[in-house]
Nucleic acid binder design. Structure first.
Lengths: 207, 207
DNA sequence: AACTTATTCTATAGAACTATAGAATAGTCG
DNA sequence: CGACTATTCTATAGTTCTATAGAATAAGTT
């Protein structure tokens, strides 16, 4: 086993160092998937020995849990605060979409891992995180339902199906947003919201 | 090593047997992901020894390639034939969405694997399959562009972004469609198409 | 400096997994 | 039936990976 060229300095702040570790894990899990990534891969990103990681987490699965947790962190709170503000159902939906895409800006890897790898979590934490997912679906659904009740949205809309459609659309951004950065997250959010609210068909000469 | 309870009969048709093997692989890869699934898992589904699989494929990666190939098989052809039919741009888009969701009915696992695991393919086959993906995106994009030119769709639409949105929405169905079968694939397709074409907002008193 | 604690390192046990080799069994056909 | 081919099995080499133990080094403190 070879000696590392330069021994990295130990951080004086454990918290900060732990965040660096989890950040590297997020990066690697996002790229190769949980099972496709080895703890060695994470260590390589940090320039550290594989075994050193275990000072910061007790198992690879726990690392995944930390990444996933940060991947949904704040999603629900942000969504709730959007729905509690004043405004039409359309406004709220626009806000929901924007707040849902927002974490892609600074936590893209975490979100990707949450979306694609959460199924590999051990049962208990998977359940816990699954509840958060469903909470978010519910919030979208409720806004749609409210819009239908207020006659702002079409009465023939299936709120559950529409919520899944909108979330599917929004979540798909995580797979390409970093590659094609000619569109900012805000612009994507606005475009998507306009698309589902008014549709793509030209208006004016209808009915 | 224990003896298997009943030795499975050898199929007299190699083709058919190979299809069974790949089917089991699709099922297992869909559930656990490529790296999360072992060849043992596949063998368990078939009630066969792990090593027996290697009579049908030379490596696990090749099995993934076969699954992915069948996961996109016919997508492009079906999409092209839709766009070549007569009809408005809206009709074509509806048709595209329907034909894109159609394989979920009988090949859900293959589609899931194609969508989620193709990134784990070795470089060359990943490229080849990536080209097919891009071809499909292009087809959607072209229909949108044609609709804009014919003034059927709004002029301010970004066709690339809209195509990605619609595909993201459609592809997301693969993650939940088998769990919640209270909606048939056809109904989902129709709902989604209506959603993006006309939007969710109630019409009639506008402009 | 001497001592104490925090962090990383070396080394490795032990498990799991892919893939190969060659034996054994089942099916087919003269 | 006996020979021939197809398919599956047993057994295992060799690799990779997670996680632990204990030594070594860096940082902080008195």
């Amino acid at each position: 086993m070879k000696r590392l060229p330069v021994r990295p300095k130990a951080s004086r702040n454990r918290r900060r160092r732990a965040a660096e570790i989890i950040d590297a894990a997020a990066q690697v899990f996002a790229r190769r998937g949980f099972h496709g990534a080895s703890t060695q891969d994470i260590a390589d990103v940090l320039g550290v020995r594989q075994a050193s990681l275990y000072y910061y987490f007790p198992s690879k699965e726990d690392a995944l849990e930390m990444v996933c947790a940060r991947g949904v962190e704040g999603f629900v709170e942000a969504a709730i605060s959007v729905t509690e503000a004043r405004g039409t159902a359309s406004d709220k939906l626009r806000g929901l979409i924007a707040s849902h895409l927002s974490p892609l800006r600074d936590r893209g890897d975490y979100v990707k891992v949450f979306l694609n790898e959460r199924r590999h979590l051990p049962t208990e934490s998977r359940r816990r995180i699954g509840r958060l997912s469903r909470a978010i679906e519910r919030i979208f659904e409720d806004v749609l339902r409210a819009g239908i009740r207020s006659r702002e949205f079409r009465g023939d809309l299936d709120p559950r199906l529409a919520a899944l459609a909108i979330l599917g659309m929004a979540n798909s951004v995580a797979t390409w947003y970093c590659k094609e950065l000619n569109a900012s997250v805000d612009r994507v959010a606005a475009t998507f919201a306009a698309l589902v609210i008014d549709g793509i068909r030209r208006k004016g000469r209808r009915r």
